[in-house]
Nucleic acid binder design. Sequence first.
RNA 1: GGCGAUGUGGCCGAAUGGCUAGGCAGCGGAUUGCAAAUCCGUCUAUGGCGGUUCGAUUCCGCCCGUCGCCUCCA
Length: 504
Amino acid sequence: MNNIQFYNSLTNRLEPFHSIEPNVVRMYSCGPTVYDLAHIGNFRSFLFGDLLRRYLEMEGYHVDHVMNITDVGHMTDGEEDKMNLAAERMKANKKSGRVPEGAVTNPDDPYQIAQYYTNAFLDDARKLGYKIAFEYPERVPRATEHIAGMQEMIGKLIANDHAYVAEDGVVYFSVESFPNYGQLSGNTLEKLQSGAGGRVSVENQSQKRHPSDFMLWKPDNHHIMKWDSPWGTGYPGWHIECSVMAKKLLGRDTIDIHTGGEDLKFPHHECEIAQSCGATGKDRFANYWLHASFLFVEGEKMSKSQGNFFTARDVFEGRVTQSNVHPAVLRFELIKAHYRTNLNFTRKGLGDSATTVRRLMEMRQDLEERSAGEAAQVDLSHPVLKEFSQALADDLNIAGALAVVIPWATSRHSNPHEALGIWKVLNSVLSVAPINEGYEFLDSETVSEESESLMQAQQWCAELDEARREKNFSLADELRTRIKDAGFEVRTTKEGTTIQKTLA
RNA sequence: GGCGAUGUGGCCGAAUGGCUAGGCAGCGGAUUGCAAAUCCGUCUAUGGCGGUUCGAUUCCGCCCGUCGCCUCCA
C-alpha cells in the first residue's frame, strides 16, 4: 500500500491518510437534489468521489460508500417550494414532449417528480460509470425515507441544549452552543458577524438567538412535502439529512471521508459537523473532508443565463457538440484534471478525450484478442501500476497518473496476458474502456437504433471496398464521406474498410 | 472586508533547488489512389519585481491577475 495523502479541508493542508479501521474506508458523498436533471458540474464532483473510491479500492481498501438523494423539496430564496417549481417545469416538459408519456402521471405528486429525476440521475450516473449508482437503493438513501431519524437527532440536539424552539415554532441549531463552529470554513462566529456579507437580512433573524443559527425543523402546513413531528407538521432543514444518513448507513459516529463540491463547505458541511458532533458528543464527524472545485465551460462559469448550462444528457445527445458523445468520453473529460482545480470543460477538450478514450478502448480490444482474454495476475508492485498508484496516492493526482498510462498504452506489449492484467487494474479506476467493468448498462432503444445505422454503414463499407477494387475512386470517396456523415470513423485495413462509431 | 485556492508553451495539464511530464493541435517523414488510423522525428513555457543561493519555474517577500465561499448552489 502506498503512503496516501489528501488535502483535508478541515485543516487546510495535506495530511497522511489513515482509516479508522484498517483496510476499511467509510465515505459519504453529498448527492444530488432531484428537482431537475443533474448537470455536468454536478457530475464533476460526483465523479471525483467515484475516482477517490475506486482508487482506494485499488489500494486494497474495502470502501463503504454512501451518497444521499435530496428529495425533500426545500425553499428557494424567494420562499418558493422547489418541489412546486419542479412540478411547474414538469408540466411544461410534458407538454413539449421532453418527458416520455406515462413517466409522471401526476406532476402534482412530489414523490413522482422526485422519483422521475432520481431515475434520470441514476441513469446518467450509471452511463458515466459512477459505481455507487449501481448500489441504489442500499447505499443511496433518499432523505424522505429518513425523516424519523432526523426527528430523533433533532430531539437529541434539543436535549443536549444544542437546539431550541424559537417563538415562531421553528427549531434552530444554536451555533453558540458549538465552539467549533467555523472550523471547516473559517467562518467563525466573530467573522460572520464582522464580515458584513450583507446577505443575512435582519427581519428574517428576529426569532433566532444568533443570526447564524440554522433551521432544523420548520412547522409549515403549506409546504408540499410535510410530516408530523413533535414540533408541528412541517419539514426538516437542509443539513440534517446528511448527518442522519451518514451515521445510519455507515454505522459510525465518526466516518473517514466526506466529499462534496466546494460550495457545500459553508454552510452545509459546517452545519453537518455541528449537528453530528452536537448529537454524538464526538470531536469529529469526518476525519477527512475533500472538496471538489468548480467546473467551467469554455472558460466561463456555468450558468443558465450564459447559455452554457449543460446536463449530462445535453452532452450525450449532441446538444453541445452537434454530435453524440459517448459517456466514457464525458467521464474522462470530467475526471482528467485534479479535483481541486477549476476544470475547464471545452468542446476541444472533449475531442481530445475522445481520442484518448478510443485508443484505450482499442488497446483493450487488441489485448483481449492476443491473450484470448486471459489476464495475468498483477499487483501494484508492477512498475506501471506502481507509478500510477503513487501518483494517485499524492492527493489523487490524476494528471500525473495519466502521464503514466498513456505512454504505456501506446507502446508495444510483447506479453499480452500481463498487459491485460495491468489494463484491468488501470481501468478499475479510470472506468472508460469499457466504461463500467462488471456492470452492464445498455439502453435497448439506443442499441436497436444504433444497430440499424451500423448495418447500413457496413453495407456502404462493402460497396466502398468494391469501388476501390475497381479503382472507381470518386465513388469510393463519396461513400467514405457518407459513412463519416453517418457518425462513424472509417479505417482502411488489409482486411478491408472497417468502421466504428465516432465517440464525440 | 474575511477565509481559501490558483497563475506553466497555441490549448489541456504534471513535476522539480541544477538532469526541465504527458496529451491535443502544429510541423517534417514513412504509409495511402487520396485520406483516415498507425509509426518515426520535431518546435513552443514556468504573471511581474526584488531577496536567499554557485544555481530558482521550484524557497521567501511584495505586487498584479484569475477563481470559489461568506446562509439557493456540485
